[in-house]
Design a protein around this nucleic acid. Sequence first.
DNA 1: TTCCCTTGGAGAGTGCCACTATCTAACCAT
DNA 2: ATGGTTAGATAGTGGCACTCTCCAAGGGAA
Lengths: 215, 215
Amino acid sequence: MRLAELSERSGVAPATIKYYLREGLLPPGHRVTATQADYDTAHLQRLKLVRALIQVGRVPVAAAKEVLAALEDDSLDHHSQLGVAVEALPNAPEPDPADPHARAARASVDALVDGLGWQYGSSDPQGSSGAYRTLLAAVTALARLGYPCSTEELAPYAAAAAQVAVTDLDLVERYDAPAEQVEAAVALTVLYEPVLLSLRRLAQAQESARRFVRP
Amino acid sequence: MRLAELSERSGVAPATIKYYLREGLLPPGHRVTATQADYDTAHLQRLKLVRALIQVGRVPVAAAKEVLAALEDDSLDHHSQLGVAVEALPNAPEPDPADPHARAARASVDALVDGLGWQYGSSDPQGSSGAYRTLLAAVTALARLGYPCSTEELAPYAAAAAQVAVTDLDLVERYDAPAEQVEAAVALTVLYEPVLLSLRRLAQAQESARRFVRP
DNA sequence: TTCCCTTGGAGAGTGCCACTATCTAACCAT
DNA sequence: ATGGTTAGATAGTGGCACTCTCCAAGGGAA
């Protein structure tokens, strides 16, 4: 199919598709002539993924490009592909080591992680991961505001996260081909984030009504 | 204290504080003369909250303004304050009713909510809430990509969300004054989001290593 | 009192990001 | 041949979160 049809079938404006092609988010179509290219259903699927990552997952275009590049890097084993892809998602920077709130946050988080028996991998130390830095930044902000975020308060959230992770991996393991597993892992990691957060807000409204509203 | 000291103590640039004052995110200081104003620790605390919402919670400035305005609207009862504040957070728009994926998503989500016994409030119907719309949008995107997101697959996530909501409300109930409770509810809702998502990613890495890496 | 530095306030400007519009040369159908 | 598409490149747009520049009014030191 040509670009116009790709646009129509995906609901993405032609100019936007051209932009994604330029940015390398979408592989170039098969060139038929100097001014014509052919796109197949793989392009369509990829385009839908790109749109979902950017619009639903709020992933910046540049990060999405890195994520997708990792999925196609055949020089990496699948575990590394996933690691590189997830690491490309937006994360907080390294905190200021002089900030006392940041130090306290690190202590709480490290105690939490140790208490759960989460191991730092040798090749990919958890302590340097983007998720760890983002967690530190959030806990630091909570501490700075005076809100509770000690190891004890974080523990139930970590327990819930562990449960969710088991469910995530169960979904990923439904796929047989490793390449499909990696793509599914990325897509489910990113696209289930708004699902989780929305469900939490709905559950909060529910629980709040249960506790505070007496009919 | 004057603006310069407020800036120093909060780590926020003076020009940025002026911008927040202009935008109404921060109440004006107590005017001493025509060219001087005094700020107190309440301003400092508010400024820290604003920064945390914007930088850690990724809340847009305009939305943060609405959220904070709701916290100070004394014409509302506290339950409504919280409702208005949470509703001001960024959410997906109403989906296209003609899209078959969106219809399927709505069916899955409604079945899920019904199955859990979550009740639509009469004054604030859940079906029109921003969280519900965001959930629909995310599930629609998953369906469009062909990833599993039926009621059965969503159920474990909803169960985890319910657990988290109980923990959230426990934290909120530590505060005695209703005004404090409302502010805490908003701050904890927004600022625990990156905490939850980071913990999920760390737990995923853990679970993934447990399943796929045999030493 | 005079000089000068700082402050609060207002408007314009900046940089980044995600597109989007315009242009051009090539191509295909008629 | 010719009118409408198409791919690709370049420049422009709009939104957002600041950030810079300017100004008149204080206030402190000499």
